[in-house]
Write a protein that binds this DNA or RNA. Structure first.
Lengths: 363, 363
DNA sequence: TAGCTTAATGTATGCGCATACATTCCATTG
DNA sequence: CAATGGAATGTATGCGCATACATTAAGCTA
């Protein structure tokens, strides 16, 4: 790859000044057609592509927004995939046990939403996962190259986030306000879980309901538990002050909790889980112990990931509008860029309760 | 947001030169501890975050790779999502008819794979969809701000791609070599479809097999049809020179084809489709016509999207390692950056045949 | 102690572009 | 025909950083 041509090269070849070359790209209407044609020809001839770095520097805007996630799954991917040359035939007829977990639908959907909304405003999206020991560095790096940042809560330490926020606007997804000054986008965890709880009690007539939580420091988990309690209280049922058990939001941990429940004696009539992965893990364990779902035990989840629809029975859950989260975050970010003095925003998106087999609503 | 501090500000406050500030970030080992401490303090004090644009410009590398997709779904998203303020409770108990289509698992997975491999090499990923009339401009813009580009074939016109490739390395996913000089990452369409064909003939004893193709200009489709023919020939069955029908890879079009098949008279005993969406559409139509799958008609797909696992019956299909595609693309891209003179690479990733209900393998 | 080496830091420059401002060229106008 | 104004283009500068090279200080050798 020979040295890339610059505005100077194009200007020389077209016999114009660099300002004119720049105008052909940025303000075409200010250049005569004849000149434009000569410049275009030179551009094609030389294979010129404007440098985004130089442009961003000179224009004082990056034209991109950053999206940074924590490393939910601890995926480091291992070495790059094995490949083989053309002609060698490999096809397996195995059952799909080797299919990788669908991973983070959540992240994927937020990404898609982010991209769509960014596109509508002519911006690119730069993504990075603050993964590993250099996670903070990754975050910092990303912040330096974008006009604003969307991040999930808990991605980096508060101090770093505050540091970044002095330079560019930051929108936090899924973390409720904690007295900070960031803009926040959340979903209605409380209302969702409250509605789900009432459904289980009202429609299925169950009063022996327990809550299986997630990490104690998760704001989402806290809100969902709060919704659970409100649901119970509204039904005149005494509400516990703590979840029956806590997992770490992974399916594996959910399985462990399920086994523990089975061993500990009679399993509650209904288990309301703080997320889908936990619900799926518990389902795995209960089915393995020959319990029937929903006949013996009702299970519900939260999130609405695709995997919740692929289990048998399928999981009744509360769907978060994941793609909308991304879109709303970008929308808010761009508003903030337009009006830096606007007071801190908090937007809460509505959730949807999805009734399926695991609560007994579908056969 | 007041004017962001620069190296100069930090240097002044710390009483050092800008070179030293820069070194604290880039070559910390070349700075004495005492100096480093003073600089760090100034950085925190001022809220300094290095400008990525300036860094990229000066260092002549962006530290990011680009990922550009075509607009598969024609999603423009419409206006940003409705939100409501805190406290207002909305939760619905409707069936999930409003759940948005799972969209592009394919794209999502490639994104995730790309990000993982980029992370392993300390690079960020900038994504953009070449969507709408300004698609080419988006692509061009993206190209200017990254060190290399991963793109799906058919994303932009060949001329533009060639133009970009003069400046930065380009890796094309899913498009087989067409005599061009790009690096390519593909999946083994031929072997996958051949194995699937043999399976249907051998295991299920079906000889009345037809192929439902996709767009005639799709290289993937061409290869899959070729695999189909090879499978038949290997079984001693005469192979057609053209697909029985062609769709456009969408489910809607698949439904139409399905209805047409039903009307046209006896439906072949097995329909092998060039992608999952088409298979799902045909399944919809056959079930609507009261035909039984797989008892009356066997249906198979290709891709392994999640939706293929959520239908009833679930679709037997050939799974592409989508995440691995992204990883392999980045891997190849970085090799290319390391050795620009390396001959053009082509890597083909193995596929997996997933046997499920729609061919009769699972009850 | 002169001469040499190495560590630490500073100086000066350029990366490639956008843009404020200056200049040139015409077409109008009175 | 001189004065005016707008369109098209050019000149000059700075965006914020990395880095080659220069400089200084300090330790070490013979």
């Amino acid at each position: 790859m020979p040295k890339a041509p610059t505005v100077y090269d194009v200007a020389d070849l077209a016999g114009v000044s660099i300002a004119t070359v720049s105008r052909v790209f940025r303000k075409p209407h200010k250049v005569s057609q004849a000149t434009k044609d000569r410049v275009d020809a030179a551009v094609l001839d030389l294979g010129y592509v404007p440098s985004g770095s130089a442009r961003s520097l000179a224009a004082r805007r990056a034209g991109a927004i950053g999206l940074c996630f924590p490393d939910f799954d601890g995926i480091d991917g291992g070495p790059a995939p094995i490949a083989y040359a053309d002609g060698k035939v490999i096809a397996r007829l195995d059952p799909p046990e080797d299919v990788e977990p669908s991973g983070n639908l959540y992240i994927s959907e937020v990404m898609l939403g982010t991209e769509i909304e960014a596109w509508r405003h002519g911006m690119a999206v730069t993504i990075a996962v603050a993964r590993g020991e250099r996670g903070n560095e990754i975050f910092d790096n990303l912040a330096g190259r974008v006009d604003g940042m969307v991040t999930l809560s808990q991605t980096v330490p508060e101090g770093l986030l505050a540091h970044i926020a002095r330079r560019i606007p930051v929108v936090v997804i899924a973390g409720p306000r904690a007295g900070d000054d960031y803009d926040h986008i959340g979903t209605d965890n409380v209302a969702g879980m409250e509605a789900m709880t009432k459904h289980v009690v009202d429609v299925h007539g169950v009063r022996d309901v327990a809550f299986v939580g997630g990490p104690a420091d998760s704001p989402d988990d806290r809100d969902r538990f709060e919704g659970f309690r409100m649901g119970l209280l509204a039904e005149g049922i005494e509400a516990p002050s703590e979840p029956l058990l806590r997992g770490d939001f992974t399916r594996g941990h959910g399985r462990m909790l399920g086994r523990r429940l089975v061993e500990a004696g009679p399993v509650p009539r209904a288990l309301m889980c703080s997320n889908d992965q936990t619900a799926l893990g518990i389902l795995d364990a209960l089915l393995a112990a020959e319990l029937r779902v929903p006949e013996d035990v009702i299970i519900t989840g939260f999130d609405g990931i695709d995997a919740s629809e692929m289990s048998r029975p399928r999981i009744t859950t509360v769907r978060q509008p994941m793609r909308e989260l991304g879109r709303a975050a970008v929308d808010t970010l761009l508003r903030r860029l337009g009006d830096p003095l606007m007071p801190p925003q908090t937007r809460t998106l509505p959730v949807t309760v999805l009734l399926r087999e695991s609560c007994g609503c579908l056969p």
